[in-house]
Design a protein around this nucleic acid. Structure first.
Lengths: 164, 164
DNA sequence: ATTTTTGCAAACCATTTGCAGCTGG
DNA sequence: CCAGCTGCAAATGGTTTGCAAAAAT
């Protein structure tokens, strides 16, 4: 019941920064210093985050970028398929969509934790359901909501047996 | 490729209104006229809707309820497990969670259409994945994003064959 | 009568945008 | 140089809330 091993990063041909630059170049846009700071910071660690956390994080790290630029850059990173949006609550969360295997989520509604998992059957299901409905599938989202092990333990009164 | 038959309603022991009253009674709250109007209107038709559409709809039907009351009542209906929230865009959409079989969604990112489908394999998948992670599953959400048949046709240049 | 609910208007909060000045290529 | 970018502050837009009047039990 311990935490399962987190998914490992994929080795990718280009760095996220390079992919971002490429994306911007195609559109005649620029990889500026704030954008570089953001893409590096974001892909330095793998975790879900929202705009606010990102701003705070950067401030702590002494790499201050204005809130507007953070929002504008997040939008670009999503368009560039480097990030994916995850709308679980009222604020939009983001996660890596590059250099990381595709996966789905377990969402604990008690502590709001998000756990990733991988299951290939889902992709097959997606294909067959899409075919049935004439849809051209682009992606999917499979979120299991429930109570995580920790919260389950915290909720149920501790059993005597556990004390032996 | 015509629209598949929509899912049929389930026969349920109680009407949504009765279930709502029950829920409110337990909490010592009241089933008032505006709330009655809302629950009836909402369960009169089965479709996804958001707060704004609901307000407009009611206004058209001559059953005016204030925006605040609509929001407050929607929250209650979700707590009562009569409605479920669906966050696909910036506005929260709602759908029936009572008197209707459980199902999942195809979301066309082009025209924003939402199509429901049912597939039992998903529930099984949910169970086994949850077990693996020690989660106590409560529900799930499976959303396939893609392009619906109509938008696919609209996008690809019409083929000559279609003209015969 | 007492407690909850309503509608209005104001407040909120995440996100977006207009603009004047700055910057990368 | 010049299009594109930044930061600021102000605007937006969906949703929530304070409050006095109205309704339900």
């Amino acid at each position: 019941m311990a935490d399962p091993a987190p998914l490992g990063p994929l080795s990718v041909a280009e760095s996220p920064e390079a992919k971002f630059r490429e994306f911007l170049e195609i559109r005649g846009e620029k990889l500026t210093e704030p954008r570089r700071v953001l893409v590096r910071h974001i892909f330095d660690s793998h975790k879900h985050f929202d705009a606010d956390e990102l701003v705070a994080d950067l401030r702590t790290a002494g790499r201050q970028v204005s809130r507007s630029t953070v929002y504008r850059t997040l939008r670009l990173l999503v368009e560039a398929n480097l990030l994916r949006e995850l709308r679980l609550t009222n604020r939009t969360a983001y996660e890596h969509d590059y250099g990381y295997p595709s996966h789905d989520h377990l969402h604990c509604t008690e502590c709001n934790a998000v756990v990733e998992f991988r299951n290939d059957a889902i992709t097959q299901l997606r294909e067959s359901v899409s075919r049935e409905h004439g849809f051209r599938p682009v992606g999917h989202r499979f979120i299991i909501t429930g109570i995580c092990p920790a919260c389950t333990r915290a909720r149920s009164p501790r059993r005597r047996l556990d004390l032996i």
